[in-house]
Design a binder for these strands. Structure first.
Lengths: 164, 164
DNA sequence: TATTGTTATACTCTATAACTATA
DNA sequence: TATAGTTATAGAGTATAACAATA
C-alpha cells in the first residue's frame, strides 16, 4: 500500500471546472453525450404518453410490418431475441399490440398493433415531430442532413483488423 | 381478449428485411446506432487492456487534473456521486489510481494516477488514436469536424417548452 | 439439426434515498 | 445546514446458456 503511493504526481488542481483533456475532440465522447441529450429530450417530449425510445421504435416497426415475427423485429433493431420478450410483454400488457398465431410457422408469433396502439402511435408521431423539429432548429436543415449522412457511415464501420 | 383482436390489420409481411419506416430519418435513431457502433469499436480496440470507455475517460480526467475530488470527476462526466464510487473502486483495485487524503477538505478524496496507471493510459492513448483514426478515415477530416461541431450543439439542447 | 420464443441469470449503467463525517 | 463519499436498492439495457415446441 505505501509503495502504491510512491511516484505520484501531487500537483493539485483546485478549480471546479476540470480539464477534459482530449475527450471533447474524440468522436465517441461527443457522440455519447449528444445521444444522451437527444434521448432525454425524446423522453421528456413523450412523457405525457410514457413511451421510451425503444418502445416507440418497436411500435413503428410493427406498424410498418404487420404480422412480423418477434425475432425479425428484434433483429431490425439490434435487440437480442431473449431481450425482445419482456419488451413485447410490456407492449402487449399496455394493450398496444397483440401476439397472434403465425400463419405458416407455429413456432412464431405474428405481431399486430391494436386499434389503441395505432391511435397512440399516431399521437406519438406528432410528439416525435416536435422533438425532431427542435433538433433540426438547433443544427440547421443542412447540418441535419450532413449529420445523418455521417452517422450512417459510422454505423457501418469496418471491423478492426485482427492482429497479424 | 377476443375484442382485442378486432380491427387488426392482417396484411402480412413475409420478407426478412423489415421496413424501418421513418426511423432511419430520425436523428435520435441514427445517433443511437452510431454510438453503439463506436463504443463497440472502442471496446474491441482496447480489448487487450480490458478498458471500457467510462474507465478511459475517468483515467484521462484524473491525469489532467491530479488531486481532483471524486465528485468533480463525476460531475465532469455526468456520472452521479453514488455511481462514481464503484468505478473508482475498480480503478483503485486494478492499481491504476489511488484515493489520497485531500489537503484542505477532510471529507474529500484526492485522486491520483499511479505509475502503472500512467503507463497504462499512455498505451491506451495509442490504442484510442488507432480507433479514432478509423472513424476519421470513414467520414473524412472535414466530416469529422462538422460531426463534432453538430454533436456539440445537440449536447446543449434548449429545454423543451413546458406547456402553457 | 436448426430455429422461435422463452426463462434464468449476470453485468453494466443509471437514479434515488439515507447514512457518516466532515464543512 | 450543506456537502463528499458511501451504501443499499431498483430499474433499464445487454449478453449468454439452456429448454420446449416446432421446422
Amino acid at each position: 500500500m505505501t509503495e502504491a503511493l510512491q511516484n505520484i504526481d501531487r500537483t493539485e488542481t483546485e478549480t471546479d471546472e476540470l480539464d477534459l483533456g482530449p475527450l471533447p475532440g474524440l468522436i465517441g465522447y461527443v457522440l455519447r453525450r449528444a445521444q444522451l441529450s437527444v434521448f432525454k429530450d425524446f423522453i421528456d417530449t413523450c412523457a405525457e404518453v410514457n413511451i421510451r425510445p425503444v418502445i416507440y421504435s418497436i411500435l413503428t416497426i410493427i406498424e410498418h410490418n404487420p404480422g412480423a415475427r418477434q425475432g425479425a423485429v428484434g433483429a431490425a433493431l439490434g435487440i437480442k431475441r431473449s431481450n425482445v420478450v419482456s419488451l413485447i410483454n410490456e407492449i402487449e400488457q399496455r394493450g398496444l399490440a397483440v401476439r397472434t398465431p403465425h400463419e405458416t410457422d407455429r413456432r412464431s408469433h405474428a405481431l399486430h398493433l391494436t386499434a389503441e396502439g395505432k391511435r397512440l402511435l399516431a399521437h406519438l408521431d406528432g410528439l416525435v415531430r416536435t422533438h425532431e423539429r427542435r433538433l433540426i432548429d438547433a443544427v440547421g436543415k443542412d447540418g441535419r442532413d450532413r449529420l445523418i449522412e455521417m452517422l450512417d457511415i459510422i454505423q457501418n464501420l469496418p471491423e478492426p483488423e485482427t492482429k497479424a
